[in-house]
Design a protein around this nucleic acid. Structure first.
Lengths: 193, 193
DNA sequence: CCCAAATCAGAACGATCGTTACAGTCAAAC
DNA sequence: GTTTGACTGTAACGATCGTTCTGATTTGGG
């Protein structure tokens, strides 16, 4: 089966939600299909999460926390200011290695699938963008000084483009291309060059 | 009303589909809601397009043709090889001026919303990517020579990132940032520098 | 052992989905 | 003036949606 049998129902639900919602799509996956994948009864879902949207929100929160911790590790390994700025691409590689389920970015996909999402879901999507921008602005500061915010914009854009490349199927090596583009952008901000 | 009353039903359907499918979402919009927006009866929809998916596919084909023609105009105005390569961003500005309906990219949004889309829809999405890559590789040739394909990859990635920026709400000026990123990438390929 | 919490299977709810059928209306073409 | 074709409004189809309910079964701690 897709999920270990001995975990409590709550964990099985989150695990199945990650697999099926972010791979086949949230709206494309009925609750019954999810329950079958998680090997869980309907009552368990609604007692734990209140609604399908509640489960989606919690799955997104879990995913955001894991993404942040993976990025933490990659950023800590960076040997230079530039490496630290580009560590978001290392994190993308590492994250996708252990989460091969999602077709592209779970947060952007959710924003597309649920344009009228409740505030609980919207808050997680906003937190993802906030994590990205805050951290990249901090990492860009030693490289670009006063222009750190603009360089961060460039890296976010390259990051967006890398994620969308998984969806489009082009370019074929998204992280490689994204890192190259981000590095070229960063080079333009080096003082004295 | 949203649509002129004197156009034939087929045109009203396509116009409403563009507005409502690509703004509120395809799955989020029921057929009944679309029929009300188009001021058309259900029988007209199914006699003209066969199914909801058929209408989606035709709306995407129309949109792709318009996008291509807008890009044609912008590319023709380019004053240099670099301008021609970056004209895809001018086209994005021009296209979104007259099509303020879509939340971000109709093709990538459809790929997200309908991961199991039929081949009719999938063909239009593939055609969009093919248009993008073929043209950008041609435009990149005078700038990057043998590395034209790689430069085209970079520009596609910056273009992807620009589109996704509309969805994420960041960076706040997507086209401006996308153009800047693409230009920085292109500069790295100039021969003799 | 016993109690209480967790979880189960399964039926059923009303709502909405995409689609089809039916009969009536209108305008132009012959 | 009649015929034809496009289009209309409305009702209904079966399927699926998210959710709730009932009642039995399992499970772990005192």
């Amino acid at each position: 089966m897709t999920t270990g049998q001995k975990l409590p129902a709550r964990e099985r639900l989150l695990s199945a939600a990650e697999e099926v919602f972010f791979h086949r799509g949230i709206r494309a996956t009925g609750v019954d299909e999810l329950l079958r994948a998680a090997n869980v009864s309907a009552a368990s879902l609604y007692s734990h999460f209140g609604s399908k949207d509640g489960l989606v929100a919690e799955a997104l929160r879990v995913r955001l926390a894991e993404w942040q911790s993976v990025w933490d590790e990659c950023a800590a390994k960076a040997g230079s200011d530039l490496d630290r700025l580009l560590s978001v691409f290392d994190a993308l590689d590492a994250f996708r290695d252990r989460q091969p389920a999602a077709r592209w970015c779970a947060f952007l996909a959710t924003a597309t699938e649920l344009p009228d999402a409740g505030e609980e879901i919207a808050a997680v999507l906003a937190a993802d963008t906030a994590l990205l921008t805050d951290r990249l602005r901090r990492f860009a500061q030693p490289l670009a000084g006063e222009q750190a915010a603009t360089l961060a914009d460039d890296v976010v854009l390259a990051y967006n483009g890398t994620l969308a490349a998984y969806l489009r199927g082009y370019p074929q090596s998204p992280v490689e291309a994204g890192r190259r583009v981000a590095a070229a952008s960063a080079a333009a901000y080096y003082p004295g060059r």
